[in-house]
């Protein structure tokens, strides 16, 4: 019930602040377009590097979007009110994760799939790329949301976020890239999907609790 209430309000707020929704996807598109101009449309190298370009662009776009995950609630003080009651706080964290994934990650994956097909990536590779982005960004969201919660009261924490997040995210990048490599060379990629999925299954139930306690700690310091 509380989770649905939080989620519903997040969507109402998003519908009234469309620019916050458009910013990350706009940044993602612009970033890809810059790479496309750099490599040239006719060049085969572009197709070869397209998955990597999308991953780098998604990482940067998400870094930008994550920065705003709690900022509005923190500045208005609403967050403080949610932290008084544990069940309200944990349902807030869960709703934020689901909301962020739906509003930021899913549009990125849809755009990536369309771009992959426009640039003649095979259907199979486009599909695997979409899966890798869905799973990779799920882990990015979970890890990023915890780190942002730890640093909620630190102003201008962007650089610090990247410095902390990147080492944690390297295993995800390794498994995602090995998944794409295996798919493009007709090798078995199920193992990599399984590993990313298991990371997700481990982290997803823990993340809302970790976020709640990290936010609370931020207020107590």
């Amino acid at each position: 019930m509380k989770f649905i209430t939080h989620l519903h309000n997040n969507f109402i707020i998003a519908s009234r602040n469309l620019i916050d929704f458009i910013n990350p996807i706009g940044f993602y598109l612009i970033s890809i377009v810059i790479f496309v101009f750099f490599f040239g449309i006719e060049n085969n190298t572009l197709v070869q590097f397209l998955p990597a370009i999308m991953w780098v662009s998604a990482f940067l776009a998400n870094l930008l979007a994550l920065d705003k995950l709690y900022s509005q609630d923190y500045n208005s003080g609403v967050l403080e009110l949610f932290l008084i009651n544990k069940s309200v706080g944990i349902s807030y964290a869960s709703a934020k994760l689901v909301y962020y994934y739906i509003v930021t990650i899913i549009p990125q994956v849809l755009v990536s799939t369309v771009i992959s097909l426009v640039f003649n990536l095979s259907y199979k590779l486009a599909f695997i790329l979409a899966i890798s982005l869905l799973l990779g960004n799920l882990l990015f969201t979970l890890l990023g949301a915890i780190i942002m919660a730890v640093m909620v009261n630190i102003r201008k924490s962007n650089i610090l976020t990247s410095v902390i997040l990147l080492p944690l995210f390297i295993p995800v990048i390794i498994f995602a890239s090995s998944m794409l490599y295996a798919a493009s060379h007709e090798l078995n990629y199920i193992g990599s999907i399984g590993i990313l999925l298991s990371f997700g299954f481990i982290l997803a139930p823990i993340a809302p609790f970790a976020i709640y306690y990290a936010l609370k700690l931020g207020y107590e310091v």
Binding site: M1, K2, I12, N17, S76, V78, E80, L81
Partner: peptide, 24 residues
């Protein structure tokens, strides 16, 4: 609890804000 901060979500209406908190 009422704090120094008014705990209002600026994008929501008065009705929406109060209903939101009441439900929570």
């Amino acid at each position: 609890y009422l704090s120094h901060k008014n705990y209002l979500n600026e994008s929501l209406t008065v009705q929406e804000n109060l209903e939101y908190f009441y439900k929570l």
